[in-house]
Computed example of a mutant assay.
Amino acid sequence: MQHLQAVMFDWAGTVVDFGSFAPTTIFVEAFKREYDFEISLEEARVPMGLGKWDHIKAVGELPEVAARWEARFGRPMQKEDIDKIYQTFMPLQVKKVGEHADLIPGAKAVIDNLREQGLKIGSCTGYPRVVLDALIPAAKANGYSPDCAVATDDLKAGGRPAPYMLLQNMLTLAVSDVKACVKVDDSVPGITEGLNAGMWTVALLLSGNEAGLTQAEFEVADEATLAAARVKAQDAFAHSGAHYQIDTIADLPAVIADIEQRLANGERP
């Protein structure tokens, strides 16, 4: 590569944890354990990509959830409620995140190839540091170890959709130009983060949060099923501003080659 310098990846639903099930299932469990309050997996998915405290807050603000909460407790969800759910969520997530560290098919080959082309591998996440520290060794055992990994609570400036985690990756990796970076993510806040950083952005349609397929479902699905899941994810990303939309990380090499050519032609994100 003559122009690109680095690719920055999200974690769950992007490189590991097909379908991004580690955080979503535990959000459901945390609401149930702390308040005996039911949220659906679909509701838990809506704010995916945010930091986890903000995610809980955003779930509580969904009109359907807010109405059920007020009917149940006679008041809106408050900061103290979010704190309690978060405190229940955190040890569950730390305990179980390593169980969701399998690499998404194609991830290792793609990332190894990027490195062979001289690109640095950055990463960031909506997970807090204590969770990321549990995920990193589990992912490493499966063959993935990025050159940099920034958690949502590492920086005082805050997490997504602000660009600071990506900019910290650039500082750590000594990358000199935002337009020489690509952000790959399965959530709208993660794409917005990349755009706010001035990077090229690639949205993943089928491996992550928006489609919500398990790897097994993906592997046995017929084309009609995949097409329906693709449309669902495309609708979610329709106004995200992502430069590219692909099914999974396995489809990334063609995008990287195209971006390199566009940079050579003088284009920028």
Rank of each mutant, 00 (worst) to 15 (best):
4 L>G: 03
94 V>Q: 15
139 A>Q: 09
177 D>F: 08
33 R>C: 03
90 M>W: 01
163 P>G: 01
254 A>P: 10
180 A>E: 08
116 E>I: 00
105 P>R: 11
161 P>E: 03
228 A>E: 06
76 P>L: 00
172 T>V: 14
127 Y>Q: 05
30 A>S: 15
253 P>F: 08
245 Q>C: 11
90 M>N: 04
9 F>I: 09
214 T>L: 07
47 P>K: 04
117 Q>V: 00
192 T>F: 09
19 G>Y: 07
52 K>N: 05
239 H>K: 13
255 V>E: 07
98 G>E: 05
128 P>E: 14
135 L>R: 06
11 W>N: 03
224 A>L: 10
169 N>D: 15
166 L>N: 05
213 L>Q: 15
74 G>I: 03
201 T>S: 14
263 L>K: 00
233 A>I: 03
204 L>E: 13
185 D>Q: 03
255 V>A: 03
106 G>K: 03
48 M>L: 11
220 V>A: 14
208 G>H: 05
80 E>L: 06
187 S>I: 05
146 P>Q: 14
204 L>D: 04
225 T>G: 13
100 H>P: 02
258 D>R: 06
222 D>H: 02
75 R>G: 11
228 A>P: 08
130 V>F: 05
196 N>C: 10
88 T>I: 08
97 V>I: 12
248 T>L: 04
252 L>W: 11
268 R>H: 12
81 D>M: 10
25 T>F: 06
205 L>Q: 03
160 R>Q: 10
194 G>A: 10
206 L>N: 14
11 W>Q: 02
116 E>A: 15
258 D>S: 00
267 E>W: 07
248 T>K: 11
68 R>E: 02
129 R>Y: 07
7 V>K: 00
81 D>F: 02
87 Q>R: 12
239 H>G: 10
139 A>C: 04
199 M>L: 15
24 T>H: 09
123 S>E: 05
68 R>W: 02
259 I>H: 13
230 R>P: 00
1 M>W: 00
60 G>T: 00
97 V>Y: 06
107 A>S: 15
95 K>I: 05
189 P>S: 02
132 L>W: 02
67 A>Y: 01
133 D>F: 07
118 G>E: 13
146 P>N: 10
145 S>H: 09
83 D>A: 04
57 K>P: 01
251 D>A: 14
188 V>P: 09
214 T>G: 01
197 A>Q: 11
103 L>R: 09
171 L>M: 13
68 R>F: 04
130 V>R: 03
35 Y>W: 14
256 I>A: 07
268 R>C: 10
201 T>W: 08
184 V>M: 14
25 T>G: 12
247 D>V: 11
249 I>G: 12
159 G>Y: 04
251 D>S: 08
91 P>W: 11
23 P>T: 12
156 K>V: 15
105 P>Y: 08
72 R>M: 05
226 L>I: 00
162 A>Y: 04
62 L>N: 00
98 G>D: 02
92 L>N: 06
29 E>M: 15
75 R>P: 03
172 T>S: 12
67 A>Q: 15
11 W>M: 01
100 H>K: 06
112 D>T: 05
143 G>H: 09
127 Y>V: 09
3 H>R: 15
119 L>C: 09
176 S>T: 14
